[in-house]
Structures are given as C-alpha cells and as structure tokens.
C-alpha cells in the first residue's frame, strides 16, 4: 500500500496560537511552541512531523489562514 507523507508550514508571524489546529489534527502532529512570535503568541509547529498525513484538517479550521499543507505518496 502506498504510504502518504505530509508536511505543514505555519506562518509563525501570522499565527495567533489559538490552538484550533492542534485540536483538529487527527494524528496529533501539531503543538504550540514554547517560543513566542513578535506579537507574543505561542505559534503552532510540527512537534511530531513523521506522523503527518497531509489531510489539511489544520489548515481548514485555521481562522488566520496561516497554514500551508503539502503531501506526497511514497
């Protein structure tokens, strides 16, 4: 069976750390960073990048449209 591997890129300066993408992710890939961006928000990042399947659930629910999603079949 073909395996799918995904990756997300978060625009860390636009991210407001609302946590909705972290909750929406079915594979628990995302977490909020301990670092803050220029506005003081703890932005979202891929804490377990190997588990990402590129389903884009995080990007669909992101209110600030700061997530870009990529996916490949391997």
């Amino acid at each position: 069976m073909a395996k799918v591997k995904g990756a997300v890129v978060v625009d860390t300066e636009q991210c407001k750390g609302c946590d909705l993408c972290v909750v929406a992710c079915p594979s628990d890939v995302l977490s909020l960073s301990k670092e803050a961006n220029a506005k003081g928000y703890n932005y979202s990042f891929m804490s377990s990048p190997d588990d990402c399947v590129g389903c884009a659930a995080c990007a669909y629910v992101c209110p600030d449209a700061c997530i870009t999603v990529y996916k490949v079949k391997i």
Partner: peptide, 14 residues
C-alpha cells in the same frame, strides 16, 4: 525527500 515543494501542494491561503 523534499515534501515542501509546489508540486505537492494540498492547501494554501487563497
């Protein structure tokens, strides 16, 4: 392998 490539794009800001 480079996943982050425009050919593999699934979702981006319109």
């Amino acid at each position: 392998m480079n996943i982050i490539d425009s050919a593999n794009l699934v979702y981006r800001k319109t």
